[in-house]
Design a protein around this nucleic acid. Structure first.
Lengths: 152, 152
DNA sequence: CGCAATTCAATTGTATGCAATTGAAATCAA
DNA sequence: TTGATTTCAATTGCATACAATTGAATTGCG
């Protein structure tokens, strides 16, 4: 009879916000997949390109802070983007510890093709823009609270 | 001047719900890490244990449907749980295609230690239970819409 | 019944994520 | 200024994720 006890409720999968977030992230990833295949990008690679399309020539560290990823993840990912000729990696002459990431013309041009992606995602979510913005703000607030706890 | 053009707004990282979800999933994972280390589990392994603590002796496929994971992910994960003596994997005599996953006494006992986890997560999220439930329901609704699109 | 189609777990290959370590470069402090 | 500390990217090792394939077992159809 332990199974139906109230003490088990917090352990129930369906009650866990974290699993909701985790499984939604995977669902998003699967929706993005066919769209990003057309760009030749994975989702994390797409995120890096989003950062670079906003601002070019930034060190690896800045990309990592923006995406909450470390060099262990980014270094091999960036090497793949370089192999695909979308970015260039160069040591910063002013600080030889840093590697600066710059878009190639091909990487810059890919932005035009990428404009179609958010449209398709919006359609797949079957939500209004207002709903999405509200939800996004709530989730970001939660994320920032979690990250704040981690920083202590 | 292309950078500040309105056409770029949908491509801005900060405007993307998906990135909010993606980065929150990682933030959750980092909060869970030290708690789950004490149980000797990774987060996906913890999810499998949650499923099994609800119902034991289920085929791999059922776990996969519950967690939205496939055999390519689950098979090696389950082998690790078996190596840790938390579960047992046995062929279903009634359907030899299936592998049934059952808790060992050690795996069952781990549930008691796991009860502390949701408490700690609740504290880290710095939200009321009501807020968390609301947000969870919204996110699950979104996930289900995304998964519905995928099924078409 | 008998064979094709389907189901299921396992396997292979690629790409994240992250902890821990390394090594080079820059900064800080005495 | 030099020696310790810190910063930064790269590397190593382990554990997901998932597409695609495989092979065994079952189901379904004629």
């Amino acid at each position: 009879m332990a199974r139906k006890h109230a003490a088990d409720l917090p352990l129930r999968l369906d009650n866990q916000l974290c699993f909701a977030v985790y499984s939604t992230a995977h669902a998003f990833n699967r929706v993005y997949k066919p769209l990003l295949d057309q760009l030749g990008l994975t989702y994390p690679q797409y995120l890096v390109m989003l950062v670079l399309w906003e601002r070019d020539g930034v060190p690896v560290k800045d990309i990592g802070e923006r995406l909450f990823l470390d060099s262990g993840t980014l270094t091999p990912l960036l090497k793949r983007l370089e192999a695909a000729e979308l970015i260039k990696r160069t040591r910063n002459a002013e600080d030889e510890r840093q590697v600066l990431i710059a878009l190639t013309p091909k990487g810059d041009a890919l932005r035009e093709k990428a404009r179609a992606v958010p449209q398709s995602i919006l359609a797949a979510s079957a939500c209004s823009i207002g709903e999405l913005v509200t939800m996004k703000n709530e989730i970001v607030a939660l994320r920032d609270k979690l990250n704040k706890v981690l920083g202590e």
